[in-house]
Design a protein around this nucleic acid. Sequence first.
DNA 1: ACCTGAACACCGTTCAAGT
DNA 2: ACCTGAACACCGTTCAAGT
Lengths: 190, 190
Amino acid sequence: MSLTRTAVVDAAWALLRTYGLGDLTMRRLAREMGVQPGALYWHVTDKQTLLLALAERMLEPVRDKDSPTELVTALRLAILEIRDGADVVAVAHALGSETLPPTTELVSLLRVLGLPDDKARGGALTLIRYTLGSVAAQQTRTSIAGRSSEEQDAMDEQDFEMGLETILRGLGASHVSTGDSRTAARTRDI
Amino acid sequence: MSLTRTAVVDAAWALLRTYGLGDLTMRRLAREMGVQPGALYWHVTDKQTLLLALAERMLEPVRDKDSPTELVTALRLAILEIRDGADVVAVAHALGSETLPPTTELVSLLRVLGLPDDKARGGALTLIRYTLGSVAAQQTRTSIAGRSSEEQDAMDEQDFEMGLETILRGLGASHVSTGDSRTAARTRDI
DNA sequence: ACCTGAACACCGTTCAAGT
DNA sequence: ACCTGAACACCGTTCAAGT
């Protein structure tokens, strides 16, 4: 039976999950599929396109969220779950779509909460960039250490959530004219 | 005259500034210095160590700032000035020091402004990660387009500053119990 | 001490030629 | 249409041997 584009992407996906980006080479992938390296190029344009497909698969579950917090948290976990996930996203969207998939949805969610259009756009950018920066930091650190420790993961999560709350508070405070306590309560809802 | 470690780093620095990370290979570097590839390894442990040295050189001017805003802005510009600067920082601190050099100084600056220790630490992390995420996003985008447009650069800077203010506002509002106007004024000082 | 020569074990990509 | 064989132009790193 002949190769398929989906079969190639699937094998690449498996390779990425199991061994990480460093071992995801076209030659290795070909070997894994029992085929010559050149054969892959009949089904896939080049490596970067392949990585883009992997990034899309990675971010696919980040959808239909009800709040910015949920969306950003889901984004973080989706990338964090995959070895070198942040790198894949970086490389992929160096070639792919201007903005990351969940960006526009995040803008909508912020607008629903009452933010004016430009603030919502800026806020979404801030949140996405913060999230990517956080995941990148965490993954590069766990890649120097062999395996990630439970306590470090918990620490990272706590730091992330704290930063997330800070940003949401910053966004909320700019348009909701309330006292401190009310602002804090509202932030939790965001 | 014999090669020096500094000479190697200087040449690598020049190569990075001129052609970017993609053209900074050990072999290319050796060719540029009129020497065999193996010769480099007498003066430098490996490529990653070399990149670490470049990252340090890059971040060296980010020092002795008087406010978080100044420090973070300086950090952004220092990385942005160098082609693939964000990648270099990422690769470098994948091996190097746990936290980026200016992190501890940023913590101090936040403490001076009255933030308690843990909030200062968390705030510094948030700011650094946001900054790295922003620069990474901008640089990967300008690397797909051949050259960066003046207007996009201005746009990016504006977006960045807006996000920065959002984060600082979020940090400030958590400990200063004031009304909106006073908070906004204080934020500007941060 | 410092460097050359030469190798080892790889890369991504292309492309004539086969089926 | 789909794949092989084989090449092209590279990598980072090591290490005996030379000076």
